[in-house]
């Protein structure tokens, strides 16, 4: 079964076709890249896949399950998690609480048990704490568990966002420009991390990236988007040597 299949996804903003006929399929455990010039519609694709925007046409399936028309909350429960191009953390809460929010639907207990401190509160809070710390350890963030998220340095904020997304136990992880603002060393480390995440959590990853070293380094297949339409799809090396792609990126 495919991890993700999209069929002719499209969306229009006031007469402008932001994305049109977007069809890709991602194998289980694959690292898939989505590239394209600025304004090509990459983030719009992510917003459709997470239910933030309702696609105007087409359909998409996560492990065969149709997700079109579901709300972001339902899609999250089905198993798609994401990070954002401009980091969106819960700034005023601690690093630990950020990850615990990712665990929101995995260890549920009612607000009443929370207020009255019933046994289910203590049981689930303990499980949440343990699971969250374990996840933070993977990203070497456990030392800063009680730091306020806004006070973390940039690179760690990116890591925390990934940790929070993974806390929801996704089947598919969408990374929106994970290397943005990172230096070459940090990017190299990130590449290792992404591969490690894929293997350890046994998930598929779709990522948007401008950094070609990262894309060619880890993506097995890529799709190039230009002006909302797919320019080409295929094995990374083939696509990157395609003259059309070079033209779209660098010009003639």
């Amino acid at each position: 079964m495919k991890a993700l299949e999209t069929k002719n996804l499209g969306i229009t903003f006031g007469g402008l076709k932001a994305v049109d006929g977007f069809t890709i399929s991602i194998e289980q455990g694959q690292l898939y890249g989505l590239i394209g010039p600025n304004g090509a519609g990459k983030t719009t694709v992510f917003n459709m896949l997470t239910g933030v925007y309702k696609p105007g046409s087409g359909a998409f399936f996560l492990e065969g399950q149709p997700l079109l028309g579901k709300s972001p909350v339902e899609i999250s429960k089905c198993g798609i998690a994401r990070t954002f191009q401009n980091i969106r953390l819960f700034d005023k809460q601690s690093v630990l609480d950020n990850v615990k929010l990712g665990l929101h639907n995995r260890f549920p207990y009612s607000a009443i048990s929370g207020v009255l401190r019933l046994p289910s509160y203590f049981k689930n809070e303990k499980l949440m704490d343990e699971t969250a710390i374990e996840l933070l350890k993977v990203f070497d963030l456990d030392g800063e568990a009680y730091t306020i998220a806004a006070n973390l340095p940039y690179g760690k904020q990116r890591k925390l966002e990934i940790a929070r997304a993974l806390a929801t136990q996704p089947k598919l992880l969408l990374l929106d420009e994970p290397a943005a603002g990172m230096n070459p060393n940090e990017t190299a480390e990130l590449m290792e991390n992404i591969r490690f995440i894929r293997d350890r959590f046994k998930i598929s990853i779709l990522l948007i990236e401008h950094d070609m070293s990262l894309v060619s380094g880890i993506c097995e297949e890529i799709t190039v988007l230009n002006f909302g339409k797919i320019l080409t799809s295929g094995k990374t090396a083939d696509v990157l040597s395609d003259p059309e792609v070079i033209k779209a990126y660098i010009g003639e």
């Binding site: 997470t50 239910g51 933030v52 709300s71 972001p72 909350v73 999250s76 429960k77 998690a81 994401r82 954002f84 969106r88 953390l89 819960f90 700034d91 005023k92 809460q93 609480d97 615990k100 929010l101 990712g102 929101h104 639907n105 260890f107 549920p108 207990y109 607000a111 929370g114 207020v115 009255l116 401190r117 509160y121 689930n124 809070e125 949440m128 929070r164 997304a165 806390a167 929801t168």
Partner: peptide, 28 residues
């Protein structure tokens, strides 16, 4: 205070801190 320091309280604060992020991790 107990509500604030619980699963529901974190969810309430996540709505304040970042609505879109809260939605995408499954907070109603």
């Amino acid at each position: 205070m107990n509500l604030t320091d619980s699963r529901a309280g974190r969810a309430i604060m996540s709505v304040r801190d970042n609505r879109i992020a809260a939605e995408t991790i499954g907070v109603s």
